[in-house]
Nucleic acid binder design. Sequence first.
DNA 1: TTCATTAGTTCGGGATATTAGAACTAATGA
DNA 2: TCATTAGTTCTAATATCCCGAACTAATGAA
Lengths: 114, 114
Amino acid sequence: MILIMRTPYHPNIEEITVEGILHAFSDPVRIEIYADLATAECAKNCSTFLTIQKRVLPKSTLSQHFRILREAGLIRSERKGVELINSTRCELKERFGPMILAIIEAYAKQQKDV
Amino acid sequence: MILIMRTPYHPNIEEITVEGILHAFSDPVRIEIYADLATAECAKNCSTFLTIQKRVLPKSTLSQHFRILREAGLIRSERKGVELINSTRCELKERFGPMILAIIEAYAKQQKDV
DNA sequence: TTCATTAGTTCGGGATATTAGAACTAATGA
DNA sequence: TCATTAGTTCTAATATCCCGAACTAATGAA
């Protein structure tokens, strides 16, 4: 059996939808990853998030989470050597900035309360 | 075979989560219903939404959509005779107001552009 | 007091999505 | 060349979504 590894797909800005973004954010692991990337000083590879919210994730699962964030248009993933370097897509700011900010803020507040 | 119809379940405010809300909003039908209820003068029954976005929904499907909105804590459904009267839960304003507003706004803008 | 009507729910199945282990790719560096 | 590392793909099990059919529960008319 031969596997082919395609280069990660990134949608154009016009293809990005509110529903798509909300679906991507409907999983706490994915909000967490996005919030971390959004506030981080620099881009991060996937393995940074193998342990998230005190839970160890299988890397196949983590890979899917990154794919969903990427295909929703929320993050950009660039291969750098053997790693994938992920960052938030700042082109989103114009169309979705306020919504994304409000979501991250509400989630952060919730996590503090818990 | 006997079906039992339970009275609709509404979570307490403390039980409501950001992820839950975002999952509920990850379907355009549900955003549409919520946005309509939020801007409406008065509460509305479910059947009001049998045709939504130029598409006719089976009522079993619509019933599920309402259940998901309700269990996410976004709406309140009260039986009035044979109908279910639905309205948004304004207790949410304090904790989730800005987020919900930003989502509805982003979605409205998207629909205008299309 | 039936009985038809109306509004919505539940059930059940097929389709679709999510999860995670195992096997893999692709890049690197010794 | 080959081991290592980072991530992907495959696959099968599980969960979730969708919708037609059968149902409940309330009402109002005969």
